[in-house]
């Protein structure tokens, strides 16, 4: 863990070498997310509610997804540049160091410039929390916390999966973005509005709904089933198969030597 912070320190030092770039990315990120917020806002301006969800409720949903995503992105997006690590041969260099590959990949890039998106999520959450009509009991606060943690874990798992796939093919990784950046975008709304098919896909295959939809229902009082609040924990378990896949890819990398 100490080493992690040493790595973080060197990345901060690197990024501070390019001040203008850093601040501009932050501002850019902030504005982009803000436009998404306006998208939701104007929609509700016309329709007042979507499938029975009020604006403030959707805002809660949106901001937790965004918060989870931006945190995950901040710390785990090293995997995002993983195909580049493979192609440039930098992975060999990581393998030459007596530390875990995962740790080194995580710390190959850390996107602090993504704080813009994070700030955005926090602001929206601050607006949504008092206005959504939820009485904030301890259980509800915990649910919200679990949603964010579970979301972080699921996105982290997806990034690992992405890296794992890049051991096998460099081309065509774009489709993975549907699950990462894509779910961030359409995760603005509770997943049920997209229909049953989509909802069950994101429940059983890619467990986005486990942190975005079910605990959300409990949070806003649509259901009294308190078990829904714990579903994000299953999302965390999703990391295991993804990691196993990554490890398999790594062992194959060693044997193909590409």
């Amino acid at each position: 863990m100490r080493l992690y912070f040493k790595y973080v320190a060197i990345i901060i030092k690197s990024q501070m070498q390019y001040k203008a770039s850093f601040f501009m990315t932050v501002a850019g990120q902030f504005l982009v997310s803000f436009s998404a917020f306006f998208g939701v806002y104007f929609m509700f301006d016309r329709f007042n509610e979507v499938e029975g969800f009020s604006f403030a409720e959707v805002l809660i949903c949106f901001s937790t997804v965004l918060l989870a995503f931006s945190l995950s992105e901040c710390f785990f997006r090293g995997f995002d540049t993983f195909p580049k690590l493979i192609r440039s041969g930098s992975l060999d260099r990581l393998l030459l160091r007596p530390r875990s590959v995962i740790l080194q990949v995580l710390t190959s890039t850390i996107e602090f410039s993504r704080v813009g998106r994070f700030l955005q999520a926090v602001i929206m959450l601050c607006i949504a929390i008092p206005t959504c009509g939820v009485t904030w009991t301890f259980a509800k606060v915990m649910t919200l916390l679990l949603m964010v943690i579970g979301g972080m874990a699921v996105y982290c798992a997806l990034f690992i999966l992405y890296a794992g796939i890049s051991f096998f093919t460099i081309e065509g990784l774009e489709f993975m973005n549907v699950f990462t950046d894509g779910t961030r975008e359409f995760g603005k709304y509770p997943l049920s509005i997209y229909g049953k098919g989509v909802l069950s896909f994101f429940t059983y295959v890619i467990p986005i709904a486990l942190f975005q939809y079910y605990p959300f229902l409990y949070l806003i009082g649509r259901t009294d089933n308190a078990w829904y609040a714990f579903l994000p924990l299953i999302g965390i378990v999703f990391i295991l198969p993804c990691y196993a896949f990554f490890a398999f890819g790594l062992s194959r990398y060693k044997s193909t030597g590409s």
């Binding site: 080493l3 690197s14 990024q15 041969g89 030459l96």
Partner: peptide, 27 residues
Amino acid sequence: VVFGQRSQLWWDVPVIDSFELLKNVYK
């Protein structure tokens, strides 16, 4: 291991920072 064509130093920071990080990596 030294690869003539590939760097192991962190590109944007002074060399000494890379050294200190490697010190930690190798304990």
